[in-house]
Amino acid sequence: MRGGWIIAVLSLLLLAWFVLNDLVDDWGRLEGGMDNLVIFVEESMWPPNWSVLEAQSYPVCENDIELFCSVGYLGMMETIKIAFVSTMLGFIGALCLSSLAARNLVPLYVALPFRFILAATRSLPSLIWAILFVIVIGFGPLAGVLAMTFYTIGYLGKLQYETYEGMPSDCLEVSRAMGLSHPSTVVSVVIPETGNHLLSQLMFMFEYNVRHGTVIGIVGAGGIGYYITTYLKFLQYDKVLALLIIIFLVVVVIDLLSLMIRSFVTDEGDVRRPTWLKGMIKLWKKRGSSSDAE
């Protein structure tokens, strides 16, 4: 049996190699590629230019803290805001549609059209949605929000209905036998039972939207991507690198946040409460009790 698996994996790898070989017409291009990259990073990108965290010359900064008027902060905040709003709107939209697309919640003739709708929204990448909305409503964050909301509905909707379809059938059967309506079953049985997965998907989507905010900014849909495109146009790669580092740090913080939030939902699932968080909660409780005593 194990030998069969090994042969299957090796055959697939071999097939992938042949396909790659077919795609690449000139392997000589790889020669010296690494040197080019090193020269590009050393001469144009490194070190990152942290002037992106200094106040812009225009408009005049009225805040005491200079950072709050910087390109890095303003761009990142706008990206986070776009990502947050579109994730929330998309999540609610996906919840409504996914419960009508899950085979164990509705009959096939209801599920199929909703699956088609979700597939259609998902098949256009957020960049194409952004271009469409920039054409319809013009440049700015609203186009970004709408683009990401539509993509989020399609993407989260699929993840959600697949989660519903994998949930235990006994509680659904009970609600069906008891005569609970479809909305009641979704709100009272399906969402609580799959809550941990839904939350995890929500946090993943938020992180995805923050990362993608950089891409949709390129077509003028707002956020940090707008500044990245501007610096790329003027060949200021050191500033681009600084902005990319900021995005990376934000993504790491969101990941930690996701870990923290999910640890409150379950105490036996895939996420345990981080030790530092346990320590903080203990300290906070201790402080509370000591101030009560005073």
Binding site: P168, D170, E173, L180
Partner: peptide, 30 residues
């Protein structure tokens, strides 16, 4: 009447990630 049929399956059909109150309330909701 509404919710005239009650059902307790072998695996009980409880919402594992919800509280006892939530689960008992489902019966009243029905």
């Amino acid at each position: 009447k509404k919710g005239g049929l009650g059902y307790i399956p072998q695996r009980l059909g409880l919402v594992r990630h919800a509280s006892v109150r939530h689960n008992v309330n489902l019966g009243a909701k029905a």
